[in-house]
Design a protein around this nucleic acid. Structure first.
Length: 262
DNA sequence: AAGTAGCGCAACCGCCCGTTT
DNA sequence: CAAACGGGCGGTTGCGCTACT
């Protein structure tokens, strides 16, 4: 089901671990995906930016659904595919909560045959060949890995303290002043999709608190936000991070010391 | 019970396109 | 104008699970 993990030039490939998911989810929900290329380093995961983007878009995004395609969704998918062809991202935009990858898989593994059958035998009888019975595990697979790696919001950091939150609510996060129009923060997070309870809890994420502990009070170098306002008014977040060599060397030392990756 | 074939799906790869320099 | 870069997209692969022999 899942590709086994391996390293290629220090970049991990294969199945994502629960720990990696937590780090990526926490980082993006806190800071957004302002630059996929740099994000893995700041989030503390040994992955390529593309891999992080894929994992987020297909799996970790808020409100993303897995399995359990309804008959209505299948019908809509077939209809849209007739009109649009293999434009999976366009189709995905019309199927809320479904990623283009999942839609593509659904088409290739289930609906392609059904559509072909419909063409050859224009009988409605074949519409019944797929069952949508919740009790049918084969047609409504519950991915065990998905359950393992997708803790419910609110239980994600269950048992951990919620001490020293940098921000305690969506409102507080939203009030952060961003410099630079290229910081596309929270672009996927609407008020409807942002889980406030998760926001409350993930500030206690261990790797963040480890770093916080060695930084001056109120500073967090993993954050594109935490530059003094006087600087952020002059430079974009990315300007600062790209030019501050001491910051990069500090980040490198964190990585070398396995503060992030363990 | 053991071996095997097929299925489902997460993840990777390579290409394309838009933006920036 | 062109090269470089980053992000997005569609095709494909790899592997665990399940059903079948």
């Amino acid at each position: 089901m899942v590709k086994s993990s391996c390293y290629d030039n220090g970049v991990k490939k294969g199945a994502w671990s629960e720990d990696e998911d937590i780090k990526l989810r926490a980082y993006i929900q806190r800071y957004g995906h302002w630059n996929w290329g740099l994000l893995p380093k700041f989030a503390g995961v040994s992955r390529s930016g593309k891999s992080c983007r894929l994992r987020w878009m297909n799996y970790l995004r808020p409100n993303i659904k897995h399995g359990n395609f309804t008959k209505e969704e299948d019908d809509l998918l077939i209809d849209l595919h007739k009109k649009l062809g293999n434009k999976w991202s366009t189709i995905a935009a019309k199927l809320p909560g479904r990623s283009d990858n999942e839609i593509k898989n659904r088409w290739n593994t289930h609906l392609k045959k059904r559509a072909q059958n419909d063409l050859t035998e224009s009988s409605n009888e074949h519409l019944g060949t797929l069952e949508y019975d919740q009790a049918n595990p084969k047609e409504n697979p519950v991915n065990k890995t998905s359950l393992l790696h997708q803790p419910e919001a609110g239980t994600l950091f269950a048992g951990e303290s919620s001490e020293s939150p940098s921000y305690s609510s969506l409102t507080e996060i939203s009030s952060c002043q961003l410099s630079g129009s290229d910081c596309a923060l929270f672009s996927d997070l609407t008020p409807q999709t942002f889980d406030e309870e998760l926001v409350d809890n993930f500030w206690s994420e261990p790797f963040l608190t480890d770093i916080d502990a060695i930084l001056p009070s109120g500073k967090n170098l993993l954050s594109p936000f935490n530059f003094d306002n006087e600087f952020s008014s002059q430079y974009s977040c990315q300007d600062l991070m790209m030019t501050d060599e001491s910051l990069w060397s500090m980040m490198d030392s964190y990585v070398e010391n396995n503060i992030f990756i363990n």
